[in-house]
Each structure stands twice: as structure tokens, then as C-alpha cells.
Simulated assay, not measured.
Amino acid sequence: MNHYHYIFTGNGLSALLTLFEMIQSGRFSDKKILLIDSDSKNKNDRTWCFWDTKNLFDEISAKKWQLAWFKNKDFTNQLNLNPYEYKMIRSADFYKLIFDEIAKHTNIDMFQDEVVDFSELGNHCVVKTKTKSFTCNKVFNSIYNPELVKSQKKIPLVQQHFIGWFIKSKEAVFTENCTTFMDFSVEQKGNTRFMYVLPTSSTEALLEYTLFSKDLLSKEEYEREIEDYIKKLGITEYEIVEKEQGNIPMTCFPFWKNNSKNIINIGSAGGWSKASTGYTFKNSVKKSKELVRFLKTGKDFTKFHKINKFWCYDLLLIDILYQTNQHGSAIFSSMFKTEKAPLIFKFLDEETSFWEDLKVIWMCPKGLFIKALLKRIF
């Protein structure tokens, strides 16, 4: 049975970012590392977007925007994102960057198979796939188990689910330098529903029909709404170049309580997506850096996570969206009808002071949050 210092069960975003940070640190070149996944990650299977001021992964950013539309049925606001830029990264470019780096290091192996079990046995761990078993010192698990959240009622689960079409149109209808961050002018139907548009030219864009809600839709309903939106844009002829779909868990569930001394849950399995927005890429970059710094301390993984004030803020929003999902548009509209997008981004990045927190909170419908807070307390 082959032994490794570190095994990653799953080689998605969180695993690859953590491994990349380990490589960049230069502290793990003498450690044997194994990545296991049933998927070869050799195609473009998703798109990540995030706001940034620090040239993060500029070399593989497919597009950047300095302006963004926010829309609902009552108003349209063009947001100046300065000093931030809104960036788009295509997963195929990210995978290539990381795998090219991995190929330079003989201490890192990759194995394509499905992980069926992993466990901690004293001071080492065992990882089993359909065809082989391995032992290691520590496991980074990114295999998400939704039943952990669904089997309890104390912490709710809202799902960010979407289908996106990347299209080329005959008509030049898109504003290339301005993304559509959220367009709540689509029918809400008792939910929080919006269209998300990422233009790469005047005739090309990724359009995603997105919901923050408890329940998923049929594939036909997402695609029907995209078709209707395309018609409203004045497009009469277009080609669908690619399709993508996703479902991101939005929850404050304490995944970290399932960490053990030598096994840590990362990515969606560890609650690395920002609960209140579902944004994953930048949050995972931060978490991976924290985790690699933590590894150097030699402490056990049960001591990695700490709750902060932003976890509490997120919990109140998720409570509201779970209980009264129809209020999502009003909440986000109250924030983005102002000219304070940079402050909101700073808040969502969990980098604001308490006084800055209050400025953002003051923008929101206070009755909803007071009611949610009182319900949590009592």
C-alpha cells in the first residue's frame, strides 16, 4: 500500500489552490503528495468571477470589467467598481496553469479514480478508491456531502443554482466594458431570481439564469428564461457556443466540526464558499493561503477554523432567504442602488471595520434583519 504525506480526495478548485500555495511556499518539496479524482479536468466545465484589486491570477483572466449594471423592475444603476475590477476566469485556463506547475514536481502524483472511503486510524489515514488503497499522514477532503446539512434543521441551506449559455449573436447588443452583476427585472415568482451577464464583446456573452432558493428547477425552465431574456435584448439570431450549470451551497453549517486531527474538509465540503453570496474563487484563495500557513504550525486540523462576525451576518441573510425567499431582490437592491459598490465588495470580502459594517447594514431593510436576529436569539 503506497504511503503519502498528503492526499487530496478530489482535485477541484479548493484542492488545486491549496496545492498551488504549498508549491509556492517552497516548504513541501520533500513531501509526497497525491491528488485523486475521477475527473481528468481537461475541459472548460465552469466559469469563476470575482472582484479584485491585487492582480490575482491576471495571467489567466479571460476578461475584466470596471463597470457593472445592477437592475430591477424599478431602476437601473451603473456601478463604478474602482478600485476593484470584476474578473472572469475560465476553468480550462485555471486547470492548465495548475497542472503545468504540478508537472514540474516529481513529488506530486495524480491518480484518476473514484474515492469511495477515507478514515483516520490513529496517527495515519487510509483512502480507498474503487481499485486501490493508500495511506497518508493527512487528508484534504473536498468531496461534498449535502446530507450533512439536510439532515439537520438548525442551520438552513439555500442553493445558488443556475444554467448559463455562452452565445454569439448577430446583433451587437452587449456593452463590452460593463457586466450585468444582477438583473432582478426578470419575474421573481416568489423566489430570488436574476440574470447574470458577462459580455466579452459586443456580440458575445455568457448569460446565466440564477436563483438563490431552496429548490432546483427543471432544466427546461432555466433555458426558457434564458431564451426569453435573449429576445428582450433584441437578439433575433444567435449561436450557443457552450453551456454550463452549477449548484453552490449557501449555508453557515459548521462543516469544520467534522474535521479531525488529520482530516480537513475544504471547498464546498468545508464551507469555503461565501455563504451570503455563493462566491467561491476568491474566498477559496484566502482559505487556501490560511490553510498552508496553518500547516506550518503542525497543529491538528480541529484547531483550524474560527467563527468571526461575518459568519453571523451571513447566517441572518441565509435565514431570511430560507424563510422568505421573495425578499432577496429587495435586499440586494437596497445595497446596490447606492454608489457604494466598493464598500459593499470590501464588506463581502470580510475586510471591513465594525463602523464600515454598520454603513452596509444600514442600507438593508432593517425590519427583516431585526426579525431574523430576534428569532435567532430567542
Rank of each mutant, 00 (worst) to 15 (best):
Y4I: 12
I7G: 02
G12E: 01
G12L: 04
L16I: 01
I33E: 04
I33T: 02
N42H: 11
D45N: 13
W48I: 03
D58P: 04
S61D: 08
K63W: 07
L67Q: 07
F70K: 07
F70R: 01
K71P: 07
F75N: 14
P83F: 05
I89P: 05
K96T: 12
F99M: 11
D100R: 06
A103D: 13
T106A: 12
I108A: 03
M110N: 06
F118Y: 15
E120Y: 12
L121V: 15
C125L: 09
V126R: 14
K128C: 10
T129R: 13
T135Q: 12
T135I: 07
Y144F: 15
E147C: 08
Q152H: 01
V158F: 05
F162L: 08
T200G: 07
T200S: 15
T203C: 15
L207D: 09
L216D: 13
E220T: 15
E221K: 14
Y222Q: 03
E225H: 15
E225G: 07
I226N: 04
I230D: 06
I235R: 02
Y238N: 10
Y238W: 15
E244L: 15
Q245F: 09
Q245P: 01
G246M: 00
G246W: 06
C252M: 05
F255Q: 00
N259H: 07
G271R: 00
T277M: 09
F281N: 02
F281M: 05
V285E: 11
K289S: 14
F294R: 09
L295K: 11
T297Y: 09
H305E: 12
I307C: 02
I307S: 06
F310S: 04
L316V: 11
I318K: 04
I318M: 06
N325H: 11
N325G: 15
S329L: 10
S333E: 02
M335R: 00
I344H: 06
E351I: 00
F354C: 06
E356W: 05
D357V: 10
W362D: 11
M363R: 03
P365R: 09
P365Y: 08
